[in-house]
Structure formats: structure tokens, C-alpha cells
Design a binder for these strands. Structure first.
Length: 708
RNA sequence: GGGCGCAUAGCUCAGCUGGUUAGAGCGUUGCAUUCACAUUGCAAAGGUCCCUGGUUCGAAUCCAGGUGCGCCCACCA
């Protein structure tokens, strides 16, 4: 009996069944692939944060990487796609703190150990959801190799990198300027702050014989100098002098110094120097050997140094100080002033620059090596312009603060002195006394910036240095991730990879753009336009969602996700289903017809498809998935269904058995090749239909050969 | 202030190294329908390819300038 298909394709039922079939087949694991699969092709999945659900961007990541992997697997590569989960230090802790807040609790009143354990439980719970959602996307990744950033071996290697970098002089212990979030009580790296435009007042303050311009009069108590440009004739006579400055809490004496960094044109050309609370002033203070005088504490309140202002929060203090200065006649004038201020990217609190004794990575030499690797084309970017963006970043490296004052993360394996600034790695827990001052040492309670571990991800997940996976699969083939990670993650992976393994971590970087809403607007919780990929899967099926994400989506460019578009691909899945239904209804029980000689007309149809397959293969090789997908879609619907299939109806009814058998054979062959070409994009419906085709020696479609 | 990108049909976007009549999806309009599929088919309407200049036999495509928009970075306090 011919195989009968249901009238319509039902994605829901099919998808869970098929994924289970794949997973049980073992073919996600390259070790189980048939003999022909020899040459490695490896992708390390950017580990999604294990603190919530997949979003549209993840859905795009999974789709693109799965397309690459499935295509290469069919071509005969030994494909490995390693899934992972990121503990996402600060991000997760923020999520958990919000949860605590709702429960009326606070991390600051909790025992460190308890807080850690609670977040761990929370994370492991969410990690399961995340993993199931990765499966729902159809991802053919090797779950047997899944890694979590807090796995013991990962933690151990991360800590060893820290020690090695310290020994090599690439990591040093501050004091250094850090971005301090007064709400979250931790320092943040430069990529964890977000500049926002702010309207402030620019105050012109009388500083003895000079006038300085500032938006932060409350920091005047921390001033240690006034700086002018050495070429500024107006102030030349004061350079080297000490001036007496009136303040609401009494006079202070400040030296006047000359420094090139001072702009003559801005304000009055004279700049108050507050090294404890301004990154530029700190750099300038280092150049001129100036003292550092902190007047703001970790909670953003003024310190005892400021006498009557002590305990006031910055905003309140600013108001008070300005008012008092006004009354003393020390404000010459004020003007409105628009500028960008860095804020905590999670809570929007204005960052307070502070000088703290913490760990920093020296970026210059690492960045130079990364730059060279890219120049030498050891790493190339899909969409070449990303190379320019990357180069710009690597030419302007800033030392990287890797200490976080949060519990959720990999502990920094170091001992720090209780009385001086000494600190050093101590992985084996053997150091107890400070070699500098003999004071007791204590375990550093800080954890690593999460990018410090995820930056090492490619070689860590492959089991560097000893594992066979590392030896055969590193450098990996492609790193596919979001465009915004060109400066957060990609450079760190290249730098760490080159430093620790001596080789670049991947050969090609494919960056995708943002997934925006149907109107092209960025999705955000506050706008309420966030689209949940799981909802779309429920509604239209995974295959339809994948096509909707891929077609028309060029590398690096943002894309829009609209239900109408996805609906169109749901219809397409059904169209394909019905093509197969028709073909299966048109062929006899016996499979003799498969050996029929095609008529010359049919031969032409088969040759056309071969040519198309070759064309599509080139698109796939060159990462033009948006185009390959559209081409096969167009062929299946508007050539195969609308023309070939319609034309075949007469021949299928032919009395001439040669003509009839040729038509049958041709239809089956075109169908099976179309299904193969579509498989990377629409894996579920194609695998299901493949199972229905009356072909000899059939295996799972996922390991079938790509059409030549 | 610097960097990167974008501007093509009503909407969202393709158009790779310059080459007949500029394409797709959705939307719109008309017609069809006991057929594998109404989750369908056939057909139609719809474009100053942002503007100006240049290179070329030939420009949506390459170059220069302009305009508008988006993103990222930045120490003029």
C-alpha cells in the first residue's frame, strides 16, 4: 500500500518525536558518525545565560549554527557543536537580587555561602529550561559534551590562567580606577556601563585668583590641584604656585600645575583635579605624583573629610554645596550643560569612579597579538567591515578590571594582605603571611568578571590542554554570535586563546545583527514588544520560525521578526508536506520505477535541480544562508509545485509506461533532493517526510549526503 | 568629537565581483476552485533604486560631496 500522509502538516507532534529520534541516534556526537565523516568542523555554542529563557536573539543563534552544522554534517564533515551554559556572574546575581527584593530580603543581610547556594539552585533550575528551549529550536548539538562555566575543570583552568597571567606580568593588583555601582556594591568593567545623556549644571567656581568649571562641586573637598594647559598664556604666571581656595568648610591650599590634557577652550581653561573620583584626574595625578583624597564612600555618600556634608548622598550634597558656595559669593556663574555620564547597565545608577585595590589585566600586548592574528587572516570576519570595528577596539585597549564584589562567580584564587596592598595568586592555599609587611593574609573574597571565564570558553570546553577534542578540534572552525559581542566577547576569546594555547580560537567569526520587532524597533521589556520564540514555535512550528529568522537576514544586519512572515513559512511547510503527499499518492507500491530511465524532458528537470544545488552549495559555503534559503524555497514552491508537478499530472496519467515511470522517478528524485537542500533550514518537516519516502538504504536524513 | 553602518514597491528587506525588461515575502485588486494543498492556483496594479557631480560603451551597484536615519565608542571637566 502506498504511504498515506495526513492532509496537513502538524509541527507540534512531529517535532518532539523527531528530536528524540535524532538524540537517540547518537549522531549529534561526532564520534558516532559514519566512516565517511573525517574532517573536523567545530562550532562552540555561545553559552546562553543559565538564568532565564531563550530570547529571539538566541533563536537566531541556534538557527544559524544548526544550519552550518547540518549542512557540513551532510557534506561529510565530522561535525561537533558544543552546547554550554553561562553562570553569567553579575547578570544572574542581579536577576536573583530582584527576586530577593520582591521577597523583602537583601543580599547584604545574607551569609555569603547561603546566597551562593541559593543562586546555584536558582541557576541550575533555569539551566534546564534553557536547555529544553535549545532542543525545541532543533539544535543538533552534542549534549554529551555540554559544559557549564562553573564546572570544576573550567573553574580550575580559569584560575590557572589567572596565575599564569600574574606570573607573566599581565595581571597586576591595583590601586586602579574602577567603575563603582553604588547600588550593586561592585566594580564593573567598561563594557558593563552604559553612557546616558544627562542635563546638568556647569558651575564656574572661584578658586582663589582662578575660576574653574565643574559639574561636581561636591567633590571640591577631594581636590589636590588645579591644572591648566602649559601653552595657556592666561595662567602661565600661576603654574608652580600654590593658591588658597575658599570652601564652605574652610580654606584649602592647591598647587597649580600644567598638563597637556587640559583643554584651553573648555570652561575657563582651568581644571580642578579630584583624582579619587575622576578617571582623568587620576591619570593626571599619577603623572604629577599628586596625593589622592577620597571624599565619597562606597554608598555614594560624602565622607567625614567633608565635615558638615558627611553622610549626604551625592545629589543632595551637590545641592547643598552649591547653595553654600552661592552664599559665600564663590559661584561666578552657572550654565546648563549636556553631557554623557556612565551608568550601571543593569540599574541605571550613575557610576561613581573610585580608586580601589583590585585585579587588572594589562591589555596592550594581548591586544597587539590579537590585532596581528586578524591582520594575518588567521581569524576572518564574515562581513569584512567587522574587521575594521575589531581593529579600532584593539588599537584602543583599556586595562581591564576583573574583580567583582559579588559571590556568584568563579572565586579569584588569591591571598590579599590585611594591611598593605599586597596580593598574589595562591591556588594551593599555602600562603598565610604577607611577604611585604608580615601581616596575616586572607582569601580574596572577590570573583572574576564573567567575561574572564567566557573569554576562555573555546579551549576550556574542548578540555585544554590534554583532551583529544582539544587536539583535533582546536582552533575551531566558526564562532557565530551577536554583533554586539564584537567588543565584549570576541576580542577576549582571541586574546586569551592566543595567550594560553598559542593559537587563535576560531578561524571565522560570523556575526548576526539584532532581532527587532515587526516594525524594526528594538525589542525591550519596557516597550512591551518582546517576542518570545517559544510562543512562535507553538503557533507556527520551529521550521517556520527558523525560516522566518533566516530569509532576508544578511550577516551583521539587524532583522525584523514578524508573525506574518513566519506564518508564510508555516504555509510553506504545509506546501512541502502536500507536495510529498501528492508524490506518494502518484507512485506504485513496488519501487521498480526508481530505476526507470528519465525521458529527455525529465532529464532536463533533474539537471536543472543539480545546477541549483550547486549554486545553493556555493551560497552555503560563503555564509549566504539568507539567499540559499530563499532559492530553495522559491524552487520548491514556484518551480517544483507550480510547474513541474502540475505538468506531471498528464504524464502520470499516460498509457505509455515509460513516460509514466519516468515521471514517477523524476518526481521522487526532485522531492528527495529538495528535502535534502531544505534540511539545514527546516530540519523537522524534512526529516519526517524523508522517513516516508520509498528509497532503498535509507538512513536518517541528518546524515544523508548533500546533493552534488 | 571619533568610528561603523543604512537609505531600493504601501510595509520588511534581497540584489555577491557594474551588463537585457530592478526582485522576494507580506499587503492590495480581479478571476478561478469537486484537483496534493483555501495554509491553494492564475493574473494585475505598484519603483525618480535619497540628492548632486564624476568614472564607464553601460551605474541601484564603483568614486567624491551633500542630506536624512540608526548603532557604537570618547577623559572638553
Amino acid at each position: 500500500m502506498p504511504i498515506e500522509l495526513e492532509k496537513n502538516y502538524n509541527p507540534g507532534e512531529t517535532e518532539s518525536k523527531i528530536y528524540q529520534l535524532w538524540e537517540e541516534s547518537g549522531f549529534f556526537n561526532p564520534n558516532n558518525l559514519p566512516e565517511r565523516h573525517q574532517k573536523p568542523y567545530t562550532i562552540i555554542m555561545p553559552p546562553p545565560n543559565a538564568n532565564g529563557h531563550l530570547h529571539a536573539g538566541h533563536a537566531l543563534t541556534m538557527t544559524l549554527e544548526d544550519i552550518m552544522i547540518r549542512f557540513k554534517r551532510m557534506q561529510g564533515f565530522k561535525t561537533l557543536w558544543v552546547p554550554g551554559a553561562d553562570h553569567a556572574g553579575f547578570e544572574t546575581q542581579v536577576v536573583y537580587e530582584k527576586k530577593l527584593e520582591k521577597e523583602g530580603r537583601s543580599r547584604f543581610k545574607m551569609d555569603r555561602r547561603q546566597l551562593y547556594d541559593e543562586i546555584l539552585t536558582f541557576t541550575l533550575e533555569n539551566k534546564k529550561h534553557m536547555e529544553n528551549e535549545v532542543r525545541r529550536m532543533g539544535s543538533s548539538c552534542d549534549w554529551s559534551r555540554e559544559k557549564f562555566t562553573l564546572d570544576q575543570d573550567i573553574v580550575r583552568q580559569t584560575q590557572e590562567t589567572f596565575k599564569k597571567m600574574f606570573d607573566d606580568g599581565l595581571i597586576y593588583r591595583g590601586p586602579g580606577m574602577v567603575n563603582w555601582c553604588t547600588k550593586h556594591q561592585t566594580s564593573l568593567s567598561n563594557v558593563e556601563t552604559e553612557d546616558i545623556e544627562k542635563e546638568d549644571t556647569l558651575y564656574y567656581l572661584k578658586y582663589g585668583p582662578l575660576t574653574v568649571a565643574t559639574v561636581r562641586p561636591e567633590t571640591m573637598f577631594g581636590d589636590v590641584a588645579v591644572a591648566v594647559n602649559p601653552k595657556d598664556e592666561r595662567y602661565r604666571q600661576y603654574v608652580g604656585q600654590t593658591i588658597e581656595v575658599q570652601t564652605p568648610i574652610g580654606p584649602m591650599k592647591l598647587p597649580v600645575i600644567a598638563d597637556e590634557s587640559v583643554e584651553k577652550e573648555f570652561g575657563t581653561g582651568a581644571l580642578k583635579i579630584t583624582p579619587a573620583h575622576d578617571a582623568n584626574d587620576f591619570a593626571l595625578a599619577l603623572r604629577h605624583n599628586l596625593p589622592i583624597r577620597p571624599v565619597i564612600d562606597q554608598f555614594g555618600k560624602l565622607t567625614a573629610e567633608t565635615a558638615k556634608y558627611a553622610g549626604l548622598k551625592i545629589a543632595e550634597a551637590r545641592k547643598q554645596v552649591a547653595e553654600d558656595l552661592q552664599n559665600l559669593g564663590l559661584i561666578q556663574k552657572t550654565e546648563p550643560y549636556k553631557h554623557a555620564v556612565p551608568t550601571c547597565y543593569k540599574c541605571g545608577t550613575v557610576i561613581e569612579p573610585r580608586i580601589l585595590v583590585q585585579w587588572f589585566v594589562k591589555m596592550k600586548s594581548l591586544a597587539d597579538q590579537a590585532l596581528q592574528a586578524v591582520k594575518d587572516k588567521k581569524v576572518s570576519f564574515v562581513s569584512e567591515h567587522f574587521e575594521r570595528v575589531f581593529t579600532y577596539w584593539m588599537e584602543h585597549p583599556i586595562d581591564w578590571n576583573i574583580s567583582r564584589q559579588i559571590v556568584w562567580g568563579i572565586p579569584i584564587p588569591a591571598k590579599v594582605c590585611t594591611s598593605c596592598n599586597y596580593g598574589a595568586p595562591d591556588l594551593e592555599n599555602t600562603a598565610h603571611t604577607c611577604p611585604r609587611c608580615n601581616s596575616p593574609l586572607q582569601q580574596d573574597t572577590d570573583t572574576f568578571d564573567t567575561w574572564f571565564s567566557s573569554g576562555q570558553w573555546p579551549y576550556l570546553v574542548l578540555g585544554y590542554p590534554e583532551s583529544p577534542d582539544f587536539k583535533t578540534c582546536y582552533p575551531t572552525t566558526v564562532m557565530e554570535t551577536g554583533r554586539d559581542l564584537i567588543f565584549k566577547w570576541v576580542p577576549r576569546m582571541i586574546m586569551f586563546g592566543l595567550y594560553r594555547t598559542g593559537a587563535e580560537p576560531f578561524q571565522t567569526v560570523y556575526l548576526h545583527g539584532l532581532v527587532n520587532d515587526a516594525q524594526g524597533k528594538k525589542m525591550s521589556k519596557s516597550k512591551g514588544n518582546v517576542v518570545n520564540p517559544l510562543d512562535l514555535i507553538e503557533k507556527f512550528g520551529t521550521d517556520a520560525l527558523r525560516m522566518g529568522l533566516i530569509v532576508g537576514n544578511t550577516p551583521g544586519m539587524d532583522t525584523t521578526l514578524s508573525e506574518d512572515k513566519i506564518k508564510g513559512y508555516k504555509n510553506f511547510a504545509n506546501k512541502l508536506w502536500n507536495i510529498a503527499r501528492f508524490v506518494l499518492m502518484s507512485i506504485p507500491d513496488s519501487s521498480d520505477f526508481l530505476n526507470a530511465t528519465p525521458t529527455s524532458d525529465d532529464r532536463k528537470l533533474l539537471d536543472d535541480l543539480t545546477a541549483l544545488a550547486a549554486d545553493i552549495t556555493i551560497d552555503m559555503e560563503q555564509f549566504r544562508f539568507y539567499m540559499a534559503a530563499e532559492k530553495i524555497y522559491h524552487y520548491v514552491w514556484h518551480t517544483f509545485a507550480d510547474k513541474i508537478l502540475e505538468d506531471s499530472k498528464a504524464r502520470l496519467a499516460s498509457e505509455d509506461s515509460t513516460v509514466k515511470a519516468s515521471a514517477q522517478r523524476t518526481l521522487v528524485e526532485i522531492l528527495s533532493n529538495s528535502i535534502k537542500l531544505l534540511h539545514p533550514f527546516m530540519p523537522f518537516v524534512t526529516e519526517e517526510l524523508w522517513s516516508k519516502l520509498p528509497l532503498p538504504d535509507k538512513r536518517l536524513l541528518m546524515i544523508e549526503t548533500w546533493p552534488q
